[in-house]
Design a protein around this nucleic acid. Structure first.
Lengths: 209, 209
DNA sequence: GCTTGAGTTGACTGATCAGTCAAATGGAAA
DNA sequence: TTTCCATTTGACTGATCAGTCAACTCAAGC
């Protein structure tokens, strides 16, 4: 026997990767098991259903992402730099996935959410929950920017959702275009939405020119 | 024998509706045939594969949509009113689909694009093509707004893509939240992105209060 | 009235699907 | 050493999947 839950973790990681690269509907339990080097029985020992695995997989992926977001959105960083750093992070994440799979894969959470929201309530709820968590980071940054007088007074929580909508939209476009280029538009877009000064919008395009 | 291509059209309409409500992966050829009152053989008489049907279905849906967009984006209408009208149209379309199916279904084109872009090149290309067409309407409106001095000088084509990204993002959020509410944020968001005056942004929220 | 061919039918294939299960394995606690 | 239980195995189910096919229907053109 291997480490305690080696197989379980392998199944989660494999499922996450396959679903991200392809889609929930076109990845079968057999594929996941084969790629993870596990047998069907083991799969159903750990997860009651394919749908439950998907929920667990995106949840695990989200947990792994949080330390990065905590760092990027650290209150030690200036508010507008947090947002800029987040845009760069989004780009880099897609870039890494592209190196690995050779295609733009978009946002794993919302790809799954988009595919299954109308059919699987558990997956919809989890996808929604992650969306709300991510908005909290944005809202805090906007709130601090307002406090420091960098942007006008505004509804920070509402605006955070608008910003996140733009992030999702850009990732969806990038996936369909199979081109990372448009993700570069994200930074000026979100600065415009929060009413940052024109200098901020046009300056500092990103740490890669 | 019924009208010339009655069966074919029925298959297209049924497929479009089912895929929009559910997803490509979870709608089978058998389901489509059953709902359309056609037999499997007829299906494969008209379409070489399920994937080809999907391409034809979204193309047909797009063709049906164009007269509406032509009306909304008529050059007889003031540029900013075109954009406002488009936002209302997006809301109304989702509202209609919600009445019919009882759920927010998001954008049919990009839901399919999001699900299959990494796997089916024909579907990705069609989805991309429709995306580009829609951006043209937005670009023309922005261009005219610039010409009339309603908004600052800017890269109209690039900005149109940014706007469309926001539309897609908002529709994706609405689908996952299963709530039309956030679509109401779309109008101020796109006005902000093109740099319209604050009065335009906050005024005229939509024709329903 | 015969031919033609687009459209229709229903039975069929073999693969694959999600999910089940009883029996085997093997490490840890007793 | 024996018991115990989480884990693993591989064979199994019945349903469903996309796609095939030969035979049939029927209106239109000759």
């Amino acid at each position: 026997m291997k480490t305690e839950c080696d197989t379980k973790q392998k199944l989660l990681d494999t499922a996450m990767q396959l679903i991200w690269e392809q889609s929930y509907g076109s990845v079968s339990v057999d594929h996941i098991c084969e790629r993870a080097g596990a047998k069907k029985g083991s799969f159903y020992h750990f997860f009651p259903s394919k749908s439950d695995l998907a929920v667990a997989a995106i949840d695990g992926h989200w947990q792994k992402l949080r330390p990065d977001l905590d760092r990027i959105f650290s209150s030690q960083t200036a508010p507008l730099e947090r947002l800029a750093g987040y845009c760069d992070f989004v780009y880099e994440q897609q870039n890494r996935q592209m190196q690995k799979f050779g295609r733009v894969c978009g946002c794993a959470f919302t790809s799954l959410g988009s595919e299954l929201s109308t059919q699987d309530e558990k997956i919809r709820k989890k996808s929604l929950q992650i969306m709300e968590w991510r908005c909290k980071y944005l809202a805090a940054a906007i709130r601090d920017a307002v406090r420091e007088g960098l942007v006008p007074e505004q509804d920070c929580d509402g605006k955070a959702r608008d910003l996140y909508g733009s992030v999702l939209g850009v990732l969806l476009q990038a996936k369909i275009e199979n081109d990372l280029g448009i993700i570069r538009h994200l930074k000026p877009t979100i600065f415009r939405l929060i009413g940052a000064s024109e200098k901020v919008i046009t300056g500092t395009p990103s740490h890669q020119p």
